[in-house]
Nucleic acid binder design. Structure first.
Length: 560
RNA sequence: GCGCCCGUAGCUCAGUUGGAUAGAGCAACGGACUUCUAAUCCGUAGGUCACAGGUUCGAGCCCUGUCGGGCGUGCCA
């Protein structure tokens, strides 16, 4: 069983196509059915849904679009309980006006499936691994990471809801050069605190959190070691300690943000398992490597990114690129059929490289999908807050969460397409009014919960079983029902396009319909019949709001 | 220089994979609380979809060029 409205319409269209052109389409092979384009009509004069199928197929069947539409229409089921009215319009669109019963069924489906309304049968394959955040454990998460976290976590929930098997992973860059720099930064700050004169290089981590960490070490056994051991031995101790401490802080921030990962994957482990070496050997076997100027290069044959790239430096140290090839190989070898990487858009130049690397190893590059998330500007008092990582003066994700709360932050990060810049207005995120989309949507939920609460206080009957749905005759009630019925389609499309922001827009539109309805119509009326029916409708709205917010990782409060 | 993303109302952004007369919110102006929460609602106004060509039944969306903004183009990550 499906709650997809568009699928019901596609089926009708396809069956009509089979009748009109039995030589071209068959009931057995329905692969074309899924490709039929059905869209929701913007203008009520064009019915509820429309298809352009006659315009698309007119050439193939050498018929004029309207003529083709006529033929199709002649074969559509006229007695359907689904569609009340068919109509040909404009250059050859076929418009569908759904029957009232159809919307009633959608409404009933919400009540029978409750939290499961809008979720799909598990289909298992493909197994998807979503990698996101993956911030280096060299400093606290900043707001940009927060956006990646919100997008990645919601996307995981969305794809799971779609029926896929989804796992999430955070790649921890705990190896390589920046770990040395981190350790050295801590070491230098420690020495500085105990009175040694130091020279703190400009390319080391300037942030105050390093100094704080150093201060905490004074008087501890580790502190003593940093002081007495030769630098060569002290440095790895400092690196390990700093990265572990910082990662713990990151995990705590993510916990507050409501984001959890199935796995933290350590880059160090790749080296421990010789995975980098194995990947390099495999590349060499396939003739993709070249030794030049003391380094080992990856031969980028053609493609968009044609420059050869270094995998192993002249110093013998592998680059980040080498580790990333090994990491992605590892992901595929663990059995995932689809890899989703969510990166900051400043890494976009890196996409063709990773894909080329995986292709060279014999994997299918199209099974890697990279989602690029643009930067976030923080706005306060209408002005941008400058964020420079170098000086360490950036506003951390935690600062923002402490100020505006998790719900507002998560919702805000998902109010824009992820590939466009986001202005995060701190004052707006805290405002408790219409301007603030989070509250606008949550308020719907609280209001409906409030109706039931009040009803119980007044000993009003809140049993909503067996409502007389013919009482739902107001135009705005029908609008709400239609929008509720559209929820599963919206979720399917958001998942298929990997665009979680569609959910926020849907919820805002539904909220708008509800607030207007609530304002003009009393739910707890004296009339038993109307009251019961409206409670039935309104409870369905509450459920859909809850289900949508859950996928965004935002709470649905009963009271505000 | 080359590559990627973006350019839609004064501001912030949607636009259902090429569909019908381009939509919201904010800001501006004018209204609505004795009511199930005014954290709400109703109304007015606002456009050469950066610009110029092209593709076709049809373009905000696709192609080419120009202008403007962001990012990338390391033996950094």
């Amino acid at each position: 069983m499906t709650d997809l409205v568009k699928d019901s319409i596609r089926r009708i269209i396809y069956e009509s196509l089979v009748k009109v052109f039995p030589e071209s389409y068959s009931i057995e092979d329905r692969s074309f059915e899924r490709e039929i384009e059905v869209s929701r009509s913007k203008d009520p004069r064009f019915g509820d849904y429309a298809t352009n199928i006659a315009l698309i197929l007119s050439k193939i069947h050498s018929l004029k679009p309207r003529e083709l539409a006529e033929r199709l229409l002649g074969c559509m089921p006229q007695d359907s309980n689904i569609v009340q009215e068919f109509e040909i319009a404009g250059p050859g669109f076929i418009n569908f006006k759904m029957s009232f019963n159809f919307w009633i069924e959608a409404l009933n489906s919400i009540h029978s499936r409750k939290k499961m309304y809008g979720s799909f049968e598990p289909i298992g394959k493909p197994r998807i691994l979503i990698e996101f955040v993956s911030a280096n454990p060299t400093g606290p998460l900043h707001v940009g990471h927060g956006r990646g976290a919100a997008v990645g976590d919601s996307l995981a929930r969305l794809l799971r809801n779609r029926g896929y098997t989804v796992e999430t992973e955070y790649y921890v860059n705990d190896a390589g050069n920046q770990m040395k720099i981190l350790g050295m930064s801590l070491l230098l700050r420690y020495w500085e605190l105990i009175g040694k004169s130091i020279d703190f290089p400009g390319d080391h981590y300037q942030g105050g959190y390093i100094v704080d960490m150093a201060r905490e070490l004074i008087g501890t056994p580790l502190g003593e070691q940093l002081e007495t051991l030769p630098q060569k031995e002290a440095l790895p101790l400092a690196s390990n300690y700093a990265s572990r401490k910082i990662l713990e802080g990151i995990q705590e921030d993510l916990r507050v943000f409501g984001v959890s990962f199935d796995r933290y994957f350590s880059e160090k482990c790749l080296y421990a398992e010789d995975a980098v070496k194995i990947a390099l050997d495999e590349l060499r076997r396939r003739g993709k490597l070249e030794d030049r100027e003391g380094a080992i290069w990856f031969k980028m044959a053609g493609g968009e990114d044609e420059k050869d790239r270094v995998l192993v430096r002249a110093s013998g140290e592998p680059t980040y690129f080498a580790a990333d090839i090994a990491y992605h190989k590892n992901k595929f070898d663990r059995g995932y059929e689809n890899l989703v990487d969510i990166w900051g858009s400043d890494h976009h130049g890196y996409v063709p490289r990773v894909k080329a690397g995986m292709e060279a190893l014999g994997y299918e590059p199209d099974q890697i999908r990279v989602m690029l998330v643009q930067f976030v500007n923080l706005i306060r008092d209408g002005k941008k807050i400058s964020m420079s990582t170098r000086s360490g003066e950036f506003v951390t994700l935690r600062d923002v969460l402490d100020e505006v709360g998790t719900d507002a932050a998560r919702f805000f990060f998902l109010t824009k397409r992820s590939d466009s810049h986001l202005d995060f207005d701190l004052d707006l995120a805290k405002r408790q009014s219409r301007d603030n989309p989070v509250y606008y949507v949550q308020y719907v939920h609280a209001r409906i919960a409030g109706i039931f609460r009040i009803a119980k206080e007044r000993n009003v009957d809140v049993d909503i079983s067996g409502p007389d749905l013919s009482a739902l005759d107001l135009p705005e009630e029908k609008e709400i029902m239609k929008r509720l019925g559209d929820f599963p389609d919206m979720l399917a499309e958001a998942a298929d396009t990997m665009e979680p922001h569609r959910i926020t827009f849907y919820l805002l539109e539904l909220s708008e319909l509800f607030h207007a309805y609530y304002h003009d119509n009393k739910v707890l009326t004296e009339d038993d019949r109307i009251r019961k029916t409206r409670l039935y409708l309104v409870e369905a709205v509450r459920q859909v709001i809850e289900n949508g917010l859950t996928i965004l990782g935002v709470t649905a409060p009963d009271r505000m």
